[in-house]
Write a protein that binds this DNA or RNA. Structure first.
Length: 305
DNA sequence: AGCTCTTCCTGAAAGC
DNA sequence: TGCTTTCAGGAAGAGC
């Protein structure tokens, strides 16, 4: 399932061939996952692809009206202001591929964006949990504003501050896109294993040292996963149709009953925040069942108001 | 604030 | 063998 490393890999693939291309035509199949399907046909043909970026798990394609291009700065500023962003979330099974028209069409391909070089950008999504929408340039900041921090950009201090104030389980926070953008179930579990933290630990009760370890673990896991072009569990492929390699490095995710690579204890699975959460009961000890703690035990990380 | 449950959807896997 | 049931899960919304 596409999370930050998979989306980053897809974006890098798109970036290699899309910028500079003009969209000639849009053809749609099923559209129930598109916010405003008619708007795609209305606004996209004739636009020029200016830039492809990633925000959390969203692929963002900036489109400028292609007609009058000028090197004058006021004209290019005007083009920027009238730009539209084609935003794509891959959901569980979404795939963006760049194909030649002669390439066979995969089942469940619902969008075709025909380009001026004869190729086409295709969106395939078996379960249609993905999402496609258009965001006008002036509303883009607001759209991005709903998302949390980029996990690879947030500093250790800010991370500790953010998590240290929350009473939610640490796994739930990692998955919350308004806290961190881009981490999903796989990388949350792998990061918690690396930081040796049980998924149901309450963020507020973690020590500063533990929060620092988690911050570092998230960064290291995501960086390593990007290097290996993401994890292919079931459907994920990049823009060329290639699978990722990071699934071979998973230490806990979907390894229930298998021995921990660190201590050989059997990996276990619990449901946290509605999702399967895999962990090693030895390396990631469960939080003490609290309720009657010995009174006034000093808490290193207690937050006073 | 934060938890659980439900909804969306399909295909794989389990159950009979 | 072949049909039916169950389940997974990103995100959003409801209800507690």
């Amino acid at each position: 399932m596409p999370e930050l490393p998979e989306v980053e890999t897809v974006v890098r693939g798109l970036r290699a061939s899309l910028p500079g291309r003009t969209i000639l035509e849009v053809r749609l199949g099923k559209t129930d996952f598109i916010d405003d399907p008619a708007a795609l046909g209305r606004h996209l043909p004739g636009t020029r692809i200016a830039e492809v970026t990633r925000n959390g798990k969203f692929v963002c394609i900036r489109l400028e009206s292609g007609s009058q291009q000028s090197l004058q700065s006021d004209a290019s500023q005007a083009a920027r202001a009238s730009a539209v962003h084609l935003i794509i979330h891959l959901g569980m099974t979404g795939q963006l591929t760049i194909s030649h028209s002669s390439d066979s069409v995969a089942p469940h391909t619902h969008c075709f964006f025909f380009l001026d070089d004869g190729r086409e950008l295709r969106y395939t999504d078996i379960r249609r949990f993905g999402r496609i929408l258009l965001v006008p340039e002036p509303l883009m900041a607001e759209f991005i504003g709903h998302l949390g921090k980029e996990p690879l950009q947030i500093g250790a201090e800010e991370f500790c501050r953010g998590f240290g104030l929350r009473r939610a389980r640490v796994k739930a926070l990692l998955l919350d896109q308004s806290v961190l953008r881009g981490v999903g179930n796989i990388y949350a579990d792998e990061s918690l294993f690396r930081a040796r933290l049980h998924p149901t630990r309450i963020a507020q009760r973690l020590t500063r040292k533990q929060l620092m370890a988690l911050h570092r673990a998230v960064r290291e896991i995501l960086t390593a996963a990007i290097r290996m072009r993401g994890s292919s569990i079931s459907d994920y492929v990049d823009t060329d149709g290639n699978r990722g390699e990071f699934q071979h490095r998973h230490r806990v995710y979907q390894r229930e009953g298998k021995p921990c690579v660190r201590c050989s204890e059997k990996i276990r699975r619990v449901i946290v925040a509605g999702r399967s959460s895999f962990f090693c009961p030895h390396c990631q000890p469960a939080p003490r069942p609290h309720g009657r703690r010995k009174r006034l035990e000093p808490q290193m990380n207690a937050v006073k108001h």
